[in-house]
Simulated assay, not measured.
Amino acid sequence: MSASYRGGEPVAQVVRSGFAESFHRGSVAVTDPAGNLVASIGDTGSPVFPRSSNKPMQALAMLRAGWEPGSEADLAIAAASHRGEPFHLERVRSVLAGAGLGEEHLQCPPDLPGNPDARNAVVALDGPEPKRVYMNCSGKHSGMLAACAAAGWDLAAYRDPEHPLQELVTATVEELTGDAVEHVGVDGCGAPVLAVSLHGIARAFARFVEAPEGTPERRVADAMRAHPHLIDGTNGPDNRSMTAVPGLLAKGGAEGFHVVAVPGVGAAAVKIDDGAGRASMPVALRALATMAGWEVPLAAKPEIDALTWPEVLGGGEPVGRVRTLL
């Protein structure tokens, strides 16, 4: 891999009232089920931060550390970027309680729920008081703490890149992506974020969906797909896509990152250069269809079309769409 990401090409445009008012550039890596690169746009070999798209691999490392979740849903929340809805908070607290821990052990930043209804509800009840459990990465942090408790590792330093858990995460990421981690940063939640290539992250997701039943990789994928509402939220694109297409695995990340994988088809990883999340899922889904030959199931087509060509509003009414250029 080269030392720095070089950027991509135009992959989407925003059309308002029949007029193209803006464009998004980015890079796309598409693999076959074995993880081989079969198509690409832009720079797919240089390291980028996948942000929360790394979470399935972090959850896998938690299992490898010896954590045994109390339920499939507890494993799903550890790989989630939740929106602070009541069922999200219930699962985060379940993971902590299963390890004999509490919210005071969390080291993610205090926040308010990302879901507007959930945020309004907690503000009405407690006032605008941010809490760590509301933060969208609290599921990952609760899982990290539970893994440390299971392994007998220090709880206070679990975010340190040299902590045994984070070293295991790094080894897991390198194994699944086939990349050497070239840079370690600090994610928005305070935990380490690891830079790998787009091809590498797509290869990892292909491995998740092709893993044999009962393996730790398959456990993570199955938990996410069985509980998609936990992964982002009621109206989130990951929830909607995984609900519409059984077997599909999707995980978005900050700064315009998204990965989607389908068993027997392959995976698509997308980085939007300007960090715009509105273009990442449409491009990922379209890449699977046009570059990997994925045939969207007929029953899922309305929902997948809505995610691939999201509406642009004017005056509260649809006046255009985000249009992919693949």
Rank of each mutant, 00 (worst) to 15 (best):
E175F: 15
E303P: 08
V265S: 02
D126V: 07
N54I: 14
A267P: 00
M242A: 12
C189F: 14
G316Y: 04
A211E: 15
V262N: 06
T44S: 03
A206L: 14
A267I: 03
T172E: 00
R159N: 12
A146F: 05
N115Y: 06
S94W: 11
T215F: 10
E295F: 04
V30T: 02
A151S: 09
M62E: 05
S71G: 10
V296L: 12
G70Y: 09
E129K: 15
T215M: 15
C108H: 15
R25K: 14
L89M: 11
A80S: 15
G143P: 06
G266D: 01
A3P: 04
P228G: 10
G252C: 08
T172H: 09
A97R: 13
L285F: 11
A289L: 07
E255D: 13
D179V: 03
G114H: 04
R218A: 12
P33M: 13
E182A: 13
H24P: 00
A34Q: 06
A150I: 02
G188H: 01
T44I: 13
G200K: 01
G8H: 05
R93C: 08
G8I: 03
L313V: 05
N120H: 11
V133N: 02
L37C: 01
V181W: 06
D74K: 13
A279F: 03
S138N: 04
T170E: 15
I231R: 03
L249I: 08
E129G: 10
E129Q: 15
M1T: 09
H82K: 01
D117S: 03
A223P: 04
P69D: 10
C137V: 08
C189T: 01
F19K: 11
E303Y: 09
N54P: 02
D43K: 14
H141Q: 04
A61N: 11
D222I: 06
G84N: 03
G8Q: 06
C148R: 07
V260K: 12
